[in-house]
Simulated scan of single mutants.
Amino acid sequence: MYQDLKGKVAIITGAASGIGRAIALRYAQEGVHVVVNYHSKEYEAQKLVEAIKSYQVDALMIKGDTTNKNDMEKLVNETIQHFGAFHIFVNNAGIQSDIPSHTMSLEEFDKVIDVNLRGTFIGCQLALHHYMKSKFKGLIINVTSVHEIIPWPHYAHYCASKGGVKLLTQSLALEYARVQIRVNNIAPGSVNTPINAKNFKTEQDKKDADLFVPLGYVAEPEEIANVAAFLASKESKYITGQTIVADGGLSLYPSHRNFEHDQLLESFTDEVNTKR
């Protein structure tokens, strides 16, 4: 779909599963060579590399902790050694945990901040250094969350980290705009990924999660990957410092929906589908 992506090289952190995996496969479909960073899921990373190569592009898997700068420098250096350069850096690695704020330890708070915010800064900094040194009009995509703008009880550390990434992205985008380095966010809403699996334990859980989203369903990772492909392409070349919210309307305060109105719309939809 995006011919200008063919032959580019992308690094994706936390790529072994979920949204990172979907982005890696979508990039491969576009002809992008992909570097799969993973932390512990070696088998999943290996299977992903095999799937990427089936699209006739090259792929590497490199283990590393995104909060460890030495590991991330190794990730970047091995990528450059193998491919000569990279053009897209996707900070996707992230964690979350359900903890009431009054019982949250500083260690629990710091862990989420370290992975989601500090790790994203390390990735951004190393990408920026490479782009400046190589004089590339490089691209950085940070995967944040709809909770960069929506508060979430029991997830204060997560919201703080994602809100921090939002302003980090805006600051870096402004700082490097004159050299045509673009930095943007993707903010997914509810997505059917392993990190959210506990929310979909039963068929009723999944149905309730679907109904909470205004569009009526929880997204699949591929729907977020579509946004990542667009942001990596020249079709988005005038976009920087922005967050594209891909949440099915979740940030439109779905709890304020008029459920009687929703029922009327659903009846109308059923009638239309029957006539088809």
Rank of each mutant, 00 (worst) to 15 (best):
H256A: 02
G94N: 14
L5E: 02
G64P: 05
E108N: 15
S267R: 09
S251W: 04
N184T: 03
D208T: 15
Y158P: 00
N258G: 03
E235C: 07
C124K: 00
Q204T: 10
T240E: 02
D98I: 08
I181T: 12
P221K: 00
D110I: 06
F212I: 01
L215N: 04
F136A: 03
I12M: 11
V245M: 12
G94S: 15
N185I: 01
K166D: 06
E108H: 14
P194Q: 07
A246Y: 04
F109M: 00
L25Y: 02
C159Y: 10
R118W: 01
P194H: 07
V49C: 15
A10H: 04
V143C: 10
G119K: 05
H256D: 07
S134M: 13
R178E: 13
I141G: 02
H147S: 04
H39F: 09
A24Y: 06
I244K: 03
G119S: 11
S161Y: 05
S134H: 13
C124N: 07
D208W: 14
D4C: 01
S101F: 12
F136Q: 12
V115W: 01
I80V: 12
A16M: 09
E42S: 04
Y27T: 00
I141V: 10
L25C: 06
R26W: 01
Q29P: 00
I122A: 05
K275N: 09
K111A: 15
T240G: 01
V112M: 11
P214R: 12
A156E: 13
E73H: 13
E73Q: 15
V57W: 11
D210R: 04
F212T: 02
T193D: 06
P194I: 03
Y131I: 00
V183E: 00
T193F: 12
P254N: 12
E222H: 06
T144Q: 10
S236P: 10
V218D: 14
P153F: 07
T202I: 07
N184V: 08
N184D: 05
A232G: 15
A15V: 09
I239K: 12
V112Y: 08
K8I: 04
V245L: 12
H129W: 00
A209M: 14
G7Q: 10
I52V: 13
D110W: 09
W152I: 06
D110R: 05
N37H: 02
A28C: 10
M61T: 14
N116C: 09
N196A: 13
M104D: 06
G7K: 01
G241S: 14
L128S: 02
I11K: 04
E148G: 03
E175Q: 13
L172C: 02
Y131L: 01
N142A: 08
G31N: 01
E107T: 14
N258S: 11
E44T: 06
Y176K: 05
K162Q: 06
V35M: 03
F86K: 02
G163Y: 02
E42L: 04
G249T: 04
F89M: 14
Q242F: 02
A228K: 08
